[in-house]
Computed example of a mutant assay.
Amino acid sequence: MARRPRNPAPAAPAPVTVTVCRGCCCGTSAKHPGVDHGGQLARLREGVGEAGTVRAVDCLDACGHSNVVVVSPSAEGRRAGGRPVWLGWVLADDMIDDVVGWVKAGGPGVVPAPGVLDLQEFTVSRRVRDGLPG
């Protein structure tokens, strides 16, 4: 008797993902004295909550823009044409608040970046972009 394949439960739509560089110069007080790197990461995670995912990675290889944060669109944002947005020099609390607000509002492709974040945006080289883990 042939078995019918089970239909897997539909996967939850991919949320906005915030990737924070924390393993190299971005996450050290040596390069940015006075910045509470652990506090920033905790504020992002708490603020974003269920609206997205926050992950810390070792190095994004864009050290000239330290502290680097990448905001990647949700599935909805990608369908609307959104692409990952690389933000540099994310050092102040108001920038963290703007990232949190943006994620909660829908992120890239759904709503434009708020506040001063458009001034923090930079373009990463294809070499760096293609070398990043999925």
Rank of each mutant, 00 (worst) to 15 (best):
C59V: 10
V20C: 10
A105R: 13
L117A: 13
G101E: 06
V103G: 04
R22W: 00
V85S: 04
V100Y: 01
T19K: 03
Q40N: 13
T123V: 15
E121N: 03
V116M: 09
A62R: 09
P133M: 11
L41I: 15
A51E: 06
V111K: 10
V54N: 04
P108R: 06
R3G: 11
A113E: 08
V111P: 03
E76T: 15
G82Q: 04
A92Y: 00
P133L: 14
W102V: 11
D61P: 01
H32W: 05
S72F: 01
D61I: 10
A75K: 07
V69P: 04
V100A: 02
C63P: 01
G64M: 11
M1T: 13
S72A: 15
E50Y: 00
G88I: 09
V111M: 09
A75C: 06
P5G: 08
R129L: 14
G34D: 02
N7R: 14
D97W: 01
A92C: 04
N67Q: 13
G23E: 04
G131W: 05
G39T: 06
V57Q: 06
G23W: 00
C21T: 05
E121S: 10
E76H: 05
N67W: 00
I96W: 01
V116P: 04
G88M: 06
V71A: 04
A14I: 12
G38W: 00
P73W: 03
R3S: 14
G82M: 07
R4K: 14
P8T: 09
V54W: 02
K104E: 07
P8K: 11
L91K: 12
D58M: 13
G64N: 12
A105T: 08
A56S: 15
R6Q: 11
A105G: 08
V116D: 13
N7I: 15
S74C: 09
L119Q: 15
G34K: 08
C21L: 09
L60C: 08
T28R: 13
G131H: 03
W89I: 09
E50T: 15
A92G: 06
R4V: 15
V103I: 13
G88Q: 07
D94Y: 06
A11R: 15
H37Y: 00
V103Y: 01
G49S: 08
L117P: 06
D118C: 08
V116S: 15
P33S: 12
A56Y: 00
G101H: 02
C21G: 08
P114F: 06
A56R: 05
W89Q: 15
A9Q: 12
W89V: 13
R78I: 05
V99K: 04
A62F: 00
M95R: 14
A9S: 14
C24Q: 11
G106P: 03
R22H: 07
G109K: 03
D118W: 02
P84L: 10
R43Y: 00
R83L: 15
C59R: 02
A56I: 07
G131E: 05
S29Q: 13
V18Y: 00
G82S: 07
A62Y: 00
R129G: 02
W102M: 09
P84E: 03
S66Q: 12
C25G: 12
G131D: 02
R22K: 11
H65G: 03
H37E: 06
H37Q: 13
V111R: 07
A11C: 02
V71C: 07
G107A: 12
V124Y: 03
V48H: 03
L91V: 12
L44C: 05
D93N: 10
R78S: 12
N7Q: 13
